[in-house]
Every structure is written in C-alpha cells, then in structure tokens.
C-alpha cells in the first residue's frame, strides 16, 4: 500500500474537523432549582460558555422559574391552592434561598456577604451579564400554568415562552446539556 493511500482516511477526518470548526458549539442548561447556589452555578457556566464563543440557552422550569419572577410581582393566581403556592413561593432573584444552611435567611445573608466580598456577581448582575453575552432565556409554560404565573409577573429578559419540545430541539444540537 502506498503512503498516500494510508493518509487518506486521516485527511478525510481532518477535513471533517475543519468543517466543524466553523460551526458554533452549543450549551443547553435546564434550570430546575430555584436556589441561589445552584442558580449561580448555572449562570457561571452560561456566562463562561458564552465567553468561549459557544451559543447558550437556559431553560427555566419549575422552581427555576422563581429566578425570573419580578421581585415586586403581584400574586395574581386564581384559586385557593395556586394563591397559597404563590404566597409561599414568592420567588424573585433577590429572594432565592441557599440549598443548604439557609437558616431562615441568616445563612443566605452571610453567603451573599461573602460573595460580595469576593466581587462575585449577584443573580441580578448575572442575568444582565448573560443577556449582554447573548445567552437565550426560555421560560417553561407548563410551570406557568400549574403555578398560575402570568407573563406580567416575569422579567422582560425572557426570549421565549416554550414547552419541552423547543427545549429538546435545542438540546439535540448541543454538545453540553445540563440539568441543575
């Protein structure tokens, strides 16, 4: 076998790599949790990915939707159970508890203090930074329905109100897909 023939598959593989080099890599993150620490982890990955030139989509669902609730949103849910849920699960970027050591707010307050000492961005700052970097925000309409959350109660940074199919279509094209 001649030398040039042996190199052909390698050359073909290299061509493939070079072709793919031009296409953008994608990250999709399901933000299911509504806790400060987990949400910040999601935003860290999202802003890092966007800074690496990757396309990034955050899909906010269930407790994660609390991140995108306005801090001064009115509880407009109808029906006893939804109203009760809205009252106990107020949400809002500034109200997210820690997943550990919340201690009726004391632990979370201390963690926020530590984070600001280390110049870590707040959730609000992470939301605007993500938008500046072109991160796409999707809100889960199923959660909105169950919890009685109206569009008006959510922040304007949301790009799309979608169901699971749109998320899956995005995830299918992504090389990184996380559930937080």
């Amino acid at each position: 076998m001649s030398d040039s023939k042996a190199k052909e598959p390698v050359a073909a593989a290299m061509n493939e790599i070079q072709k793919n080099a031009g296409t953008k890599k994608k990250v999709t993150i399901v933000v299911f949790s509504g806790e400060l620490d987990k949400v910040l982890a999601a935003f860290n990955i999202a802003t890092g990915a966007a800074s690496m030139g990757m396309e990034c989509t955050l899909f906010f669902t269930f407790w994660g939707l609390n991140v995108l609730k306005k801090n001064d949103a009115k509880n407009t849910a109808s029906g006893l159970m939804k109203r009760m849920l809205g009252r106990m699960n107020k949400g809002g970027s500034q109200r997210l508890p820690l997943s550990k050591f919340h201690m009726r707010g004391l632990g979370t307050w201390m963690m926020k203090k530590l984070m600001s000492q280390h110049k870590m961005p707040t959730v609000d700052e992470m939301i605007s930074l993500s938008k500046e970097l072109g991160v796409q925000f999707m809100a889960c309409t199923i959660t909105m329905g169950i919890m009685g959350i109206e569009k008006e109660a959510l922040r304007p940074e949301i790009d799309k109100f979608v169901g699971v199919v749109t998320y899956l279509a995005e995830a299918q094209e992504s090389s990184v897909n996380l559930f937080i």
Binding site: N44, T47, G48, S51, M52, G53, H118, K119, M120, P121, L129, L133
Partner: peptide
C-alpha cells in the same frame, strides 16, 4: 485582581 471564575474569562473575552 480579586475576581473569581468565570469573571476573568468573561472580561478577557470582552
């Protein structure tokens, strides 16, 4: 100085 991950990368990219 003093910034934690991913801020140095975010700022570098900009």
């Amino acid at each position: 100085f003093g910034l934690l991950c991913p801020m140095p990368i975010v700022k570098t990219a900009a």
